[in-house]
Write a protein that binds this DNA or RNA. Sequence first.
DNA 1: CGTCGGGTTGAGGGTGATCAAAGTTTGTGG
DNA 2: CCACAAACTTTGATCACCCTCAACCCGACG
Lengths: 240, 240
Amino acid sequence: MQATEPLLRKLRLSTPIDADDVRAIERLPITVKDIPAHSIIAREGERPVQCCLLVEGIVCRSKTTDAGKRQILSIHIPGDIPDLQSLQLHVMDHDLTTLSRSTAGFIPHDALHALTRERPLIGEALWRETLIDAAMFREWIVNVGRRSAISRLAHLLAEIGRRMQVMGLAAGDRFELPMTQIDIADALGLTPVHVNRVVQELRRTGLLELHKHVVSLPDLPRLKELGEFDDLYLHQSEIA
Amino acid sequence: MQATEPLLRKLRLSTPIDADDVRAIERLPITVKDIPAHSIIAREGERPVQCCLLVEGIVCRSKTTDAGKRQILSIHIPGDIPDLQSLQLHVMDHDLTTLSRSTAGFIPHDALHALTRERPLIGEALWRETLIDAAMFREWIVNVGRRSAISRLAHLLAEIGRRMQVMGLAAGDRFELPMTQIDIADALGLTPVHVNRVVQELRRTGLLELHKHVVSLPDLPRLKELGEFDDLYLHQSEIA
DNA sequence: CGTCGGGTTGAGGGTGATCAAAGTTTGTGG
DNA sequence: CCACAAACTTTGATCACCCTCAACCCGACG
């Protein structure tokens, strides 16, 4: 698979990409690497000189408090460039870590700056991607700030499911989610013990099947309702 | 005061602005308005055709859950353009509301698009501002997700104080913060009752004076420590 | 002078944390 | 392919932080 394929798919959701754009993106000098699970791609305080285009696997952004508690800020799936902000913000203010074994393409900042200069519409498309990131952060704030544990989990699952589906990474109501319950706890601002209890509650009510990191959401409407999930904030149809 | 003055001050923090840039910005067609406290500037679901440059006062972005709970996502001070994302994301995914009587300049999207096209460096500077917004959202997630009530409040006060100071809106350790304890509760994901108790706790320990919406932070080092506040994420010196 | 929004105080309750331990799966090396 | 260790999941008991409900106070403002 071309490393740029998921990216192109994602950009096309929100931007009309023409043949020249595609060529310019495919001409980017990308270094593809396989990365083991639980590896740090970029660390808080670093000054990256490249961006990371996720091609396969799952990565997350996170911060760790002085007390040693981790908070996951976002989950990223293939097609995402989770450190795109480093093009304009020179110091990482959080960590970027793989959750599963992943494949990523690394693109030098130089090349991306040149791309945005030559093809301003791609520049705007990339800007838009970072703005959608910000929109997801906003919803994430609501999730940890104002929802009960069970709603938080329902919302997280609905969001990831929706994003997977749009990227063609879900088969029906089923997708792979290589996160441990510890990871989920860090995403939701809960403890792993309580996540476990909530997972069981969702299972018991027939809203979730979860086995060996494969998720299936048999009753999506009820799950979305429980998680108050409305995909408006994902801005998946920004054209026009 | 020129409506663009706080904006220019803010942009200069992160971008070298030349005389032509200043002229281009000052030539923007801006409609200045006074807005009463607790008025909605833009509502979730709307499709704005202009951006709001805050000149005086305090506004916030917020979402309201199905259960009617409000979560404040960010606090904005003069110089901010809190709906700058609407340039690229056409539908508002949250509300924008004044917390105090405010003065704002409204700038048509057309004019801003033209500006970013003619002066790409300003375009990048605006992109950068939205990325700093995103960085603040990330820290906000950590605040509501992983910190105790008292740390959350300490962090919020330290953040706003720092931003006020940089914009020349603080006199020493003192600044105006026209938020009720209800607003603060909605920012921190707490109830007003509990915010009140935590405010008193901060007062008792000599970390906070708060009277008639004037805040003073007599022991900033201890406050920052309590709130785990490190201003890295504000990216206030992005030059080079 | 009365009303209203906001601040303060108190009592009781519940969601989710903490602590601890047992069970299960995963991964690794022999 | 098995043995073992490590990581993760599950369960139970107890605890605490923060919520809920309710009442009262206070100052601003009509």
